[in-house]
Design a protein around this nucleic acid. Structure first.
Lengths: 114, 114
DNA sequence: CTATTATGCCAAGAAGTTCCAGGCATGTCA
DNA sequence: TGACATGCCTGGAACTTCTTGGCATAATAG
C-alpha cells in the first residue's frame, strides 16, 4: 500500500529521474533544466535538489562519478541505474493513477469555471 | 511565484475541496469517500485529514458548523466558501500545468516500458 | 446485559521534505 | 581587481504526514 507521502513526493524524484534517464547530468544543470522547463510554475532551490540527489543515490536509483569539465571545474555526474529506471516507470504509473483520480474528483464538482 | 511545496501539497487540499464543492461533509465521511475513491492507491489517515481541515478553515477556504445527526452523534460539517472555490479553481489549473510538465518530462525519456 | 465494533472528534510526537540563508571554491569577464 | 556565474554543500526553520493514542456515543453481536 503506497503512502500518500510517497506519492506526493514522487513528483520531485520523478522529474529528476526523468532528466537523468535522458542523459546523465550534474546537480547544477539539473536544477537549471527543471526550472527552465517549469517556466515560472515553480522554482526549485538548490537546498531542495541536492538533498534529493543524495537520497536518490542512497536508495540506489542513481550512481555518481566526479568528472573534470573542459572548464576545469569539478562536476558530480549522476547516472540513473536499472533500479532507478524501474522506479521511474512505477512512479510514472502511480502518478497517472493519482492524476486521474484528482481530475475525476475535481471535474465532478461542476461544469463551471474550469 | 508558486513554491514547489504549495504545488505538491496542493493535491491533498484539492481533493478535499473538490469533495466539499459537491456537497458539504464532515471529517469522517470525507476520509472514507476519498479512501474509497483511491481504491488502494493510497490510504489517508485521520491524522492527515483533520489537521488539513483545520488549516483549510484557518485559511478561510471552508467554514464549519456543528450538527446533530439523526443517529444522535455530533458532526462537524465543512462548507466550502467562495474563497475556497477560487482556490479550488486555481489549484486545479496549476495541477494541470504541473501534471503536463511531469508527463512531458517523463514521456520524453523514451518510448519504451510505459 | 455486556462486549465489541463502528462512528466521530481530536492531539502529541516522530519522521520526512522543502525552503532559506548561508559557506566555500574556481573560472570568466569587465 | 572585483563582480558574477558556475558548482558543490550544510544547518536550521517551517511545514506535512504518519503513527499512535485518547475520548465519547451508537449500533450490533453474543
Amino acid at each position: 500500500m503506497t503512502s500518500n507521502k510517497e506519492l506526493m513526493g514522487a513528483g520531485t524524484g520523478l522529474l529528476v529521474l526523468s532528466v537523468l534517464a535522458r542523459e546523465a547530468s550534474y546537480g547544477y544543470q539539473i536544477i537549471r533544466r527543471i526550472n527552465d522547463e517549469a517556466a515560472g510554475l515553480f522554482v526549485w532551490q538548490e537546498g531542495t535538489v541536492y538533498p534529493l540527489l543524495h537520497k536518490l543515490e542512497k536508495d540506489g536509483f542513481v550512481r555518481t562519478q566526479w568528472q573534470q569539465a573542459d572548464t576545469g571545474r569539478r562536476r558530480k555526474y549522476y547516472y540513473i541505474t536499472a533500479k532507478g529506471r524501474e522506479a521511474l516507470s512505477e512512479g510514472h504509473r502511480q502518478w497517472h493513477a493519482f492524476h486521474h483520480m484528482v481530475t475525476r474528483f475535481v471535474e465532478a464538482t461542476n461544469g463551471q469555471s474550469f
